[in-house]
Design a protein around this nucleic acid. Structure first.
Length: 420
RNA sequence: GUGGGCGUAGCUCAGCUGGUAGAGCACCCGGUUGUGGUCCGGGAUGUCGCGGGUUCGAGCCCCGUCGCUCACCCCA
């Protein structure tokens, strides 16, 4: 037993699981790319204030879940707990919003929150996210949602649900909040719950306890307070989703954990996960850029939890049995054959063939076993016969049949190209 | 921060009311001369999380400790 252990609550992916992780992550990324989003690669830590100001002091994320430390220059640094604030910091710093709008960016990487870990909740976790900055057309809202939805569909996921709502504009939220606070004041609540309500009254909508839920039955809903423009925007978004055949549920009680959301907000929930069922979520943020010292542009984005999406795929059994298998595995059964194989492998790799060979000296049988375990589609045995004749057989592992070829890399590439 | 469950071979776990450890999978070798998966035979592997206590004797009982895990809170 080794002495060292990974820090508490981190997820690690190694083969064969890492292949699935990579597959899921790349699927999410590809769906952002085909919609015109470009990579933004950002630091994993930022000036603490980027988050306290951007995400909001009253949120749980900022008040108790950040990894914050002082660097050697005495600056307060925080490991990023979410993606949007950092993207906005960079957009403002580098004037990315001065060009053509909207600015469409995607990111992928690790995020950090100092929470008690549990199923689907890690201290270091992975997200793929996108941001579309500069316009507030309902089309952009619908596009962002559809990028996430199509990624889930491309992965083959079925048992998930999209919740959407609108948080309206600033005036809407002020009016609603006043009435909600009044309503909550009339409820008989335990101390910790009413404390929580003081920080953010919306939180009570999200409480999992039945007693609280029933008490909140008659609470005022923000959707009933929407201004005419907000209501129009929201109904246009819904209409656009329908035109794309994306199913959604309007959930007026949905609560987002970050303070910057305005207008359209949404959340994808998976039904087969544990308590942490959110596989992605996001929304529009009108004031965020201004808050961070930039121009007053609106934006919308989402973050998808790669760890959780992977768990969802595993729960649904929708992952392919084999991901990017080796095309070829070479077994050499003499010292001379081994050096021929070694050169051939190298040559094939430069031609784009994924291949590997048997190492050690385990004989033909051992080599074949290694070929089997490598998961390669084909195996090529090289011995004295092959070297002297220049001919060989490509064995298709799945069926056991042989395809004859020569040892020339150029011919092998062609033959292998036809084998799946 | 609060509560529940669990720590036995690389992995998943069994071990009856205390008598100094086992299975399956995986791994390695073999079933004679150049073809894997199935089958058969053989093999290696553990300070039973750690420390203390009770006992003639502890994987099993008691206390402590560390770790993992699930849930609340919150979120991806």
């Amino acid at each position: 037993m080794s002495k060292f252990q990974a820090p508490k609550g981190v997820s690690e992916y190694f083969p064969p699981n890492s292949l699935q992780f990579e597959y899921v992550r790349d699927q999410l990324i590809n769906n952002a790319k085909v919609a015109g989003y470009s990579l933004i690669e950002l630091p994993m830590f930022e000036d603490t204030e980027v988050f306290t100001r951007g995400v909001g002091e009253s949120t749980d994320v900022v008040s108790k879940e950040m990894y914050t430390f002082e660097d050697r220059g005495g600056r307060s640094i925080t490991l990023r707990p979410e993606g949007t604030a950092g993207v906005m910091r960079s957009v403002i710093e580098h004037n990315l919003d001065r060009g053509q709008l909207p600015v469409k960016l995607f990111y992928s990487g690790a995020f950090f929150r100092a929470e008690r870990p549990q199923a689907g909740r890690y201290r270091q976790f992975y997200q793929v996210g996108i941001e579309a900055i500069g316009y507030n057309d309902p089309e952009i809202d619908a596009e962002v949602i559809s990028v996430a939805d199509s990624a889930f569909k491309a992965l083959g996921l079925k048992n998930y649900k999209l919740n959407i709502t609108s948080l309206g504009d600033a005036k809407t939220r002020d009016l609603h909040r006043k009435d909600l606070v009044k309503f909550i004041a009339g409820l008989d609540l335990d101390e910790s719950t009413s404390e929580r309500a003081k920080l953010n009254p919306l939180r009570l909508f999200d409480d999992k306890r039945e007693e609280i839920r029933s008490k909140m039955q008659g609470a005022p809903l923000i959707l009933d307070y929407l201004s005419v423009e907000s209501a129009e925007h929201f109904s246009k978004v819904k209409q656009l989703l329908e035109s794309l055949k994306i199913d959604y549920f309007v959930n007026p009680r949905m609560v987002r954990g970050l303070d910057y959301y305005t207008g359209t907000a949404f959340e994808f929930e998976h039904e087969l996960l544990g308590a942490q069922s959110g596989i992605g979520g996001g929304g529009r943020y009108d004031g965020l850029m201004g808050l961070l010292g930039g121009s007053d542009l609106s934006g919308i984005g989402f973050g998808l939890g790669v760890d959780r999406v992977l768990m969802a795929c595993q729960a649904e059994g929708c992952l392919p049995e084999s991901i990017n298998p080796l095309q070829l595995f070479i077994v050499a059964i003499s010292q001379e054959a081994k050096s021929v194989a070694f050169k051939l492998v190298s040559e094939l790799r430069t031609l784009g063939v994924t291949c590997d060979m048997a190492y050690g000296d385990r004989g033909l049988k051992g080599g074949m076993k290694a070929a089997d375990k490598s998961g390669a589609l084909c195996t090529l045995v090289i011995g004295d016969d092959e070297i002297s004749s220049g001919n060989c057989d490509l064995k298709i592992m799945k069926s056991g049949e042989n395809v004859s070829s020569t040892l020339k890399a150029s011919e092998l590439v062609v033959k292998l190209g036809n084998i799946k």
